[in-house]
Structure formats: structure tokens, C-alpha cells
Amino acid sequence: MADDKKKIGALDGAQMTPEGLSFKGFILSPVVENCTGCERVVPFEGANYCPTYADPAKKWSHGICNFATHVKATVDKEGKTKINPLKASKRAARGR
């Protein structure tokens, strides 16, 4: 019950404009298919929007959205952690 009230209040003050949904000075784009199942998605006037990020398509274009609540992080097949390329090049220069 509390989650329903929180979702309803998530887009309080939002207005539909010709450009899209205006919320706190930003124009929100409708969510993309990858966002299906996320807890942050809020319906507004027949469409679903993400109040956390204005353009969900851009967020998913670089991989997994870091705001997604329905996707779990995966470990690479070798089990190694990813190393910052800048640090790796410095280590290689020092001979480590």
C-alpha cells in the first residue's frame, strides 16, 4: 500500500506539454522496452515514465542502466574484476 502511494506521488506536479512530459524543468521521455519490470517506472496519462532519468533510451544505449532494479550485475566468465585502463598502463610502465 505504501509503495502505491509513493509511485502516485513520484510525478506530482508533472505536466504534459507538446515536447513531452515536463517534470521539475526536464522533459521526460517514455521508457523503453528494457525498462519493463523496473520498480522505478511510473504510469502517467497512458504512458510509462522514469522519474529518475529523463531519457531512458540513452541510459540503456551504453549497456545496463545503473538505475534498473530488475537487472542484476553479472561477473565476467573468468571471474576477474575489471581494472581501470589508466591504472593498468601505469602498472605496466612500472614493470608490475
Results as ranks from 00 to 15, higher is better:
residue 86 L to F: 13
residue 11 L to H: 06
residue 51 P to Q: 06
residue 9 G to F: 14
residue 68 A to I: 02
residue 64 I to S: 10
residue 94 R to K: 14
residue 24 K to D: 08
residue 12 D to T: 13
residue 8 I to M: 09
residue 21 L to D: 01
residue 80 K to H: 09
residue 52 T to K: 09
residue 25 G to S: 07
residue 2 A to W: 09
residue 75 V to A: 14
residue 63 G to M: 05
residue 50 C to D: 03
residue 60 W to K: 05
residue 79 G to D: 06
residue 32 V to C: 08
residue 29 S to F: 01
residue 66 N to Y: 08
residue 21 L to I: 04
residue 48 N to S: 15
residue 58 K to T: 11
residue 30 P to E: 11
residue 67 F to S: 11
residue 6 K to C: 00
residue 73 A to H: 07
residue 60 W to L: 06
residue 47 A to H: 07
residue 31 V to C: 08
residue 43 P to C: 08
residue 70 H to D: 07
residue 73 A to F: 09
residue 65 C to R: 03
residue 39 E to T: 12
residue 64 I to H: 09
residue 40 R to H: 13
residue 44 F to H: 11
residue 93 A to H: 05
residue 92 A to D: 10
residue 53 Y to D: 10
residue 41 V to F: 00
residue 93 A to S: 10
residue 24 K to I: 02
residue 61 S to V: 04
residue 35 C to Q: 02
residue 45 E to Q: 15
residue 49 Y to I: 05
residue 36 T to Q: 12
residue 51 P to F: 05
residue 93 A to M: 10
residue 28 L to V: 00
residue 70 H to S: 03
residue 22 S to V: 01
residue 94 R to M: 12
residue 78 E to Y: 13
residue 71 V to G: 00
residue 28 L to N: 00
residue 16 M to I: 11
residue 27 I to Q: 03
residue 61 S to G: 07
residue 67 F to Y: 10
residue 35 C to I: 04
residue 77 K to N: 11
residue 14 A to Q: 03
residue 23 F to N: 07
residue 85 P to D: 08
residue 76 D to Y: 00
residue 10 A to S: 13
residue 83 I to A: 12
residue 38 C to G: 03
residue 88 A to C: 02
residue 54 A to I: 00
residue 35 C to N: 01
residue 83 I to T: 12
residue 58 K to V: 10
residue 2 A to R: 13
residue 16 M to K: 13
residue 80 K to P: 00
residue 13 G to D: 00
residue 87 K to M: 08
residue 86 L to N: 10
residue 54 A to R: 05
residue 9 G to E: 15
residue 9 G to A: 15
residue 54 A to T: 02
residue 66 N to G: 12
residue 69 T to V: 06
residue 65 C to E: 01
residue 11 L to V: 04
residue 17 T to N: 01
residue 30 P to F: 04
residue 10 A to T: 04
residue 25 G to P: 02
residue 13 G to S: 01
residue 96 R to L: 09
residue 81 T to S: 03
residue 20 G to A: 08
residue 47 A to P: 00
residue 73 A to I: 09
residue 81 T to G: 08
residue 87 K to R: 11
residue 52 T to I: 12
residue 47 A to F: 06
residue 42 V to W: 01
residue 56 P to E: 02
residue 28 L to A: 01
residue 44 F to N: 02
residue 67 F to C: 08
residue 62 H to F: 13
residue 6 K to W: 02
residue 57 A to N: 04
residue 89 S to R: 13
residue 60 W to Y: 14
residue 70 H to F: 04
residue 15 Q to M: 12
residue 82 K to S: 15
residue 19 E to L: 10
residue 43 P to V: 09
residue 49 Y to Q: 03
residue 29 S to G: 01
residue 30 P to V: 03
residue 33 E to K: 14
residue 16 M to D: 06
residue 45 E to N: 15
residue 23 F to E: 07
residue 91 R to A: 14
residue 20 G to K: 05
residue 73 A to L: 12
residue 84 N to H: 08
residue 75 V to L: 14
residue 94 R to L: 15
residue 70 H to L: 05
residue 78 E to L: 11
residue 45 E to R: 13
residue 3 D to F: 09
residue 61 S to Q: 13
residue 79 G to E: 06
residue 7 K to L: 15
residue 28 L to Q: 01
residue 50 C to R: 03
residue 33 E to R: 13
residue 82 K to Y: 13
residue 25 G to F: 06
residue 51 P to K: 04
residue 46 G to H: 03
residue 1 M to S: 13
residue 72 K to L: 12
residue 33 E to L: 10
residue 71 V to K: 11
residue 43 P to T: 07
residue 52 T to Q: 08
